[in-house]
């Protein structure tokens, strides 16, 4: 795998652009996931405290 990684230096500009595009899409998706997770945990905590008065 290490040897193969070196061949990525030989990528064409199109391959480099495709790599950047995929990495960008993954990063945005991860950001959306983490923000969504934080909001969801926050909403659950508020709902539980408001309706039951306890977290667990």
């Amino acid at each position: 795998m290490k040897g193969k990684m070196e061949t990525s230096k030989d990528w064409s500009p199109e391959m480099q652009a495709e790599f950047s595009r995929r990495r960008r899409s993954r990063n945005w998706a991860l950001l959306a996931f983490l923000v969504g997770l934080c909001l969801l945990i926050y909403a659950i905590a508020v709902a539980k405290l408001y309706y039951t008065g306890r977290m667990w």
Binding site: M1, K4, M5, S8, M15, E18, F19, R21, R22, R23, S25, R26, W28, A29
Partner: peptide
């Protein structure tokens, strides 16, 4: 994937990585 002809093509894909849609 290492060491087979079909595997070399797979390895290129692996280096590029998947898109959010793949996940």
């Amino acid at each position: 994937p290492v060491g087979t002809p079909a595997g070399e093509a797979l390895l290129d894909q692996a280096l590029l990585g998947g898109t959010a849609r793949d996940w």
